[in-house]
Write a protein that binds this DNA or RNA. Structure first.
Length: 750
DNA sequence: AGGAACAGTTTTTTT
DNA sequence: AACTGTTCCT
C-alpha cells in the first residue's frame, strides 16, 4: 500500500488511523472518485487526508488543488487540518464554497464575460429591493405577486442556468408570465448597480468558462485536482461548473451522502450524486459505512427513520461502538414546556457531570422555534449561543454601515445609496429620490453625478442641500482615505456622515447597536493596514459571502441553538431534536410531493445522526403559530421508532421523569391519533400499572445552592405546588428571593 | 418631510 | 406576536 511513499515525510500520519475503505479513498488513483459517505463515517477526514496525500506524495502541487466545501467554516476547518497534516499552511490552494470560488474566478477573469471588475454582491435583502423596483418598472403589482415569490422563481431559474431570455421563452402560466416581464428589468438594474446576486456568481462563472476557450483552459490547467464536499447538495449551476473544470483531466473527487440531501429548495439536485457513475463510467465508487460518531441505539433509531424513504440507495451503516442509552421520545404541553424540559434536562446532565453545556445542541426546523428556548434559557441564566436567527450581517445597523462602505467602492450601488442617503435624516424623501433617478435616466448619466447640483434637475430646499452634502461627504471620505487602512476609513465614515451620533441616541438599544457596529469594525480591522482601496473590496466580499455557521466558534461552553439545516456537518454529544410534529417536520410547505416529504425525513435523519451519546426527540400537544395556539400532532416520522428500541418519556412540568418502550401514537387507519395534554397523560399514568410518576422536591431546607445569576445561597423553604416546586432562597449577597424551580437554574452544592 | 396610528400579513430551510 | 406597508395628520 505504501509503494512510492517511502521517504515522504508525513505520509504515515496521512494513512494511520484510517480504515481500509478510507485508505482506499485517500489513496485512489487519478480517476473520478465518488465517496458515498454515510453519516459520521469520517467524510471530512477522508477529504482532508486525500488532499494532504496528493500534496505530500507530490502528485499535486498545492496551487493546483481546488477544494470546494459547503460552508466557509468547513473550508477554514479543512485549511487548519491540512496545515496540521502537512506541517504548514498549503499555499496557493483554493479552498472555499462554490460561491466564494466563483467570485474569485470572476474577479480574476470576469471582465471577459462582461462582469465588471469592482462588482458588489447583493444578498437577499438587497436583491429584494432591486426586485421591487423592477416590479414597478414592469408594472407588476406587488400585492398580487410577492417580491419573494418572484425572487425565488428567478433564483431557481438562474440555478438551472436559464437567463431572462431563456425564461421568457419557456414561461407559461400566470406567475411565470409576470416573472418573465420582471426578470429583464431586474437584470438591467443589477447591471447598472454593478451588482451580482448569489446565483449570478455561479451562473456567470459557468458562462465565463463556456464562452472563452482560453480562460477555460487556464482554469483547467490551474486546477488539476478538484475535490467537492457535500456533493449531494450541488445544483445544476454548480454541477456544470464542476463539469467544465474537470471533464478533460477527470481528476475529480466528490464526497457526499444521498441520505443527507436537504437543499433541493435551493436548487440542489440529488441526481447529481446518484448519476455520478453515469457521468463518469470509469468512476471509482467507495462506500464508507462504518460510523464513528453515534452509539448503536442512536444509529438504529436514525436508520429506522430513513429506511422509510423510497428514493434511496441502501447503505449498511454500522458501528462497533457501545449500545448506549435508548433514544428518548417525549411529548410536552406546548413549546414553552418543551423548552423548559430541555433546559432542565440539560442542567441535570451537567449536574451529574454527564455533559457540559457546550456539548449540547437544540435542533429545530424553523428559526422561529428558537424563541421559546431563548426565553427560557435567558431567564434561567443558562449560557447559549444562537446560530442564525437575526443574523449579524443582516442587522440594520450593520447593513447601514456596510452600505456606506459599499458606496466608496461603487457609487452606482443604488440599493446602498437609497439605504443610507437619508440616514441620519437629511431631509431627503421619496419624492426627491424619484426625481433624482428619473433625471439620471433621462440624461443617461449616473445618478451620482447629479448630486453636485440638485437644483439643476429641479430639486430644491432641504432635499437639495441634503443630497449635495451627502455626495460631498462620501467623496471626501474617499479622497482623503484612499491610502488609509480600512479601520481608519471606517471610523471616519461613521463619524463624518453623522451615523455614529444618529445611532447612539442615548438609549440602551442605541448602545447595543453601536456595539454591533464596533464588532463590524473589529472585522474591518482584521483586514490589516494596507490601503483601503485594496482591503475594502476584499472585506465587502468576505462579508457578503459569510454564512451564519461561520460565527460558530469552537470550544464554547454554551448550549447551541441551531436549525436542522445549519447543523449539517456538525456533531454533539447530546442532541435534542424539537418540534417533531406534523406541519413542522414535515413542514406544511413540503407536503405536496413525495420528494419533498422524503427530504423532510432526511432532515430529521441529519438531526438524529448529529448525536454522539444522547438523543432526545420531542413534540408538543399545542404550539403557537403567529401568536395563536394551534393543536399539534406528532410527526409521522416517529412511527418506526418503536421498533428501534426508543423510549418514551412523558413530560410533566417540564421534566423527563419516567420511561417506557416507545409506541408511536398512530391510529389503526394510519392517521396520527389525536393527543391529550401531557398533564392529563401524567395523571392517567399514575393510576395505571407501571412505575409511578414521581414528582418530588429536589431541594430541602438548608441545602446549599448556586443560582446562575444570584450566586450562592441556602434554601429556606421548599414546597410542591400544582405548578411545580417552589423554593425560597437566602442568598449570601442579595438576601431572600422566591423562585419556581422550573424557571430558576439551581445547582446543588456539596 | 416626517411621524403616528392603523391595517394587514406572515416561504422554512441559506450560499 | 411581530413586522411591513399604508394612510393621514402635522
Amino acid at each position: 500500500m505504501s509503494s512510492g511513499l517511502e521517504g515522504v515525510v508525513g505520509s504515515d500520519q496521512l494513512l494511520s488511523g484510517l480504515n481500509p475503505a478510507q485508505v482506499e479513498a485517500v489513496t485512489a488513483p487519478d480517476v473520478p472518485v465518488l465517496v458515498l459517505a454515510g453519516a459520521g463515517s469520517g467524510k471530512t477526514r477522508v477529504l482532508t487526508h486525500r488532499v494532504g496525500y496528493l500534496v505530500a506524495t507530490g502528485r499535486a502541487r498545492p496551487e493546483a488543488v481546488l477544494s470546494v466545501t459547503f460552508t466557509n467554516k468547513a473550508a477554514r476547518e479543512m485549511r487548519s487540518r491540512l496545515a496540521a497534516l502537512l506541517g504548514g499552511e498549503p499555499r496557493g490552494m483554493w479552498l472555499g464554497t462554490f460561491h466564494a470560488c466563483s467570485a474569485r474566478m470572476l474577479r480574476l477573469r470576469g471582465e471577459e464575460a462582461g462582469v465588471p471588475r469592482d462588482f458588489v454582491i447583493y444578498d437577499e435583502v438587497d436583491r429584494l429591493a432591486v426586485l421591487k423596483e423592477g416590479m414597478r418598472l414592469a408594472g407588476v403589482d406587488e400585492k398580487r405577486t410577492s417580491a419573494s415569490t418572484v425572487s425565488g422563481e428567478i433564483s431557481r431559474s438562474k440555478n438551472d442556468l436559464v437567463d431572462a431570455i431563456g425564461y421568457a421563452e419557456r414561461a407559461h402560466g400566470y406567475v411565470e408570465g409576470l416573472v418573465a416581464r420582471v426578470f429583464p428589468h431586474y437584470e438591467l438594474l443589477l447591471q447598472s448597480n454593478r451588482a451580482l446576486d448569489f446565483d449570478d456568481l455561479l451562473l456567470r462563472s459557468v458562462r465565463l468558462l463556456e464562452s472563452s476557450d482560453e480562460t477555460r483552459d487556464y482554469f483547467r490547467a490551474r486546477f488539476a485536482h478538484v475535490l467537492v464536499d457535500e456533493y449531494q447538495d450541488t445544483n445544476r449551476a454548480q454541477y456544470s461548473l464542476l463539469r467544465l473544470l474537470v471533464e478533460e483531466h477527470r481528476r475529480v473527487t466528490v464526497v457526499g451522502d444521498p441520505d443527507q440531501s436537504v437543499y433541493s429548495w435551493r436548487g440542489a439536485d440529488i441526481r447529481n450524486i446518484l448519476e455520478f457513475q453515469r457521468d463518469y463510467p470509469d468512476a471509482l465508487v467507495i462506500p464508507l459505512e462504518q460510523n464513528y460518531r453515534s452509539t448503536a441505539a442512536i444509529l438504529r433509531a436514525a436508520g429506522a427513520v430513513i429506511q422509510e424513504n423510497s428514493m434511496r440507495v441502501e447503505k449498511g451503516l454500522w458501528t462497533d461502538g457501545p449500545e448506549g442509552t435508548a433514544v428518548t421520545v417525549a411529548q410536552f404541553y406546548d413549546e414553552r414546556e418543551e423548552a423548559t424540559a430541555v433546559a432542565r434536562e440539560a442542567v441535570t446532565l451537567v449536574d451529574r457531570g454527564e455533559a457540559d453545556f457546550g456539548e449540547i445542541a437544540v435542533l429545530y426546523r424553523t428559526n422561529a422555534q428558537s424563541r421559546s428556548f431563548e426565553e427560557v434559557l435567558l431567564r434561567a441564566g443558562i449560557p447559549y449561543r444562537l446560530v442564525g436567527g437575526v443574523r449579524f450581517y443582516q442587522r440594520k445597523e450593520v447593513k447601514d454601515v456596510l452600505a456606506y462602505l459599499r458606496l466608496l467602492v461603487n457609487r452606482q450601488d443604488r440599493v446602498a445609496f437609497e439605504r443610507v442617503v437619508n440616514l441620519p435624516k437629511r431631509g431627503i424623501g421619496g419624492q426627491s429620490l424619484q426625481q433624482l433617478m428619473r433625471a439620471a435616466q433621462g440624461l443617461s448619466v449616473g445618478y451620482w453625478e447629479l448630486l453636485a447640483d440638485p437644483a439643476s434637475i429641479g430639486i430644491r430646499g432641504q432635499a437639495a442641500s441634503g443630497l449635495k452634502r451627502f455626495g460631498l461627504t462620501i467623496e471626501e471620505v474617499f479622497d482623503r482615505g484612499v491610502s488609509w487602512p480600512l479601520v481608519q476609513v471606517f471610523d471616519r465614515m461613521v463619524e463624518s456622515t453623522g451615523y455614529r451620533s444618529y445611532l447612539r441616541d442615548g438609549s440602551p438599544e442605541g448602545e447595543e447597536r453601536w456595539a454591533n457596529v464596533m464588532e463590524l469594525r473589529g472585522l474591518a480591522a482584521e483586514q490589516g493596514d494596507g490601503p483601503m482601496l485594496e482591503s475594502l473590496p476584499a472585506f465587502l466580499e468576505q462579508v457578503a459571502l459569510a454564512g451564519e455557521g461561520d460565527q460558530l466558534e469552537e470550544g464554547s461552553r454554551a448550549i447551541t441553538l441551531i436549525t436542522l439545516h445549519q447543523v449539517k456537518g456538525l456533531e454533539f454529544p447530546v442532541v435534542f431534536v424539537t418540534g417533531v410534529e406534523e406541519g413542522l417536520l414535515p413542514h406544511v410547505r413540503s407536503l405536496d410531493t413525495v420528494a419533498e416529504l422524503e427530504e423532510e425525513r432526511r432532515l430529521l435523519y441529519v438531526g438524529m445522526t448529529r448525536a454522539k451519546r444522547l438523543l432526545y426527540l420531542s413534540h408538543c400537544f399545542q404550539r403557537h403559530l403567529y401568536g395563536s395556539p394551534k393543536a399539534a400532532i406528532p410527526s409521522r416520522f416517529l412511527a418506526p421508532l418503536g421498533k428501534s428500541g426508543a423510549m418514551e418519556r412523558w413530560g410533566a412540568n417540564g421534566d423527563f421523569p419516567s420511561a417506557r418502550p416507545y409506541v408511536a401514537p398512530v391510529a389503526a387507519h394510519g392517521q396520527p391519533a389525536p393527543l391529550r395534554r401531557a398533564r392529563e397523560v401524567v395523571m392517567e399514568r399514575a393510576t395505571s400499572p407501571g412505575p409511578p410518576v414521581l414528582i418530588e422536591a429536589r431541594f430541602r431546607g438548608g441545602d446549599r445552592v448556586e443560582h446562575a445569576r444570584f450566586g450562592k445561597g441556602s434554601i429556606a423553604t421548599s414546597e410542591m405546588t400544582p405548578g411545580g416546586e417552589e423554593v425560597v432562597i437566602d442568598f449570601d449577597s442579595s438576601g431572600r428571593r422566591r423562585f419556581a424551580v422550573t424557571d430558576a437554574v439551581l445547582r446543588k452544592l456539596g
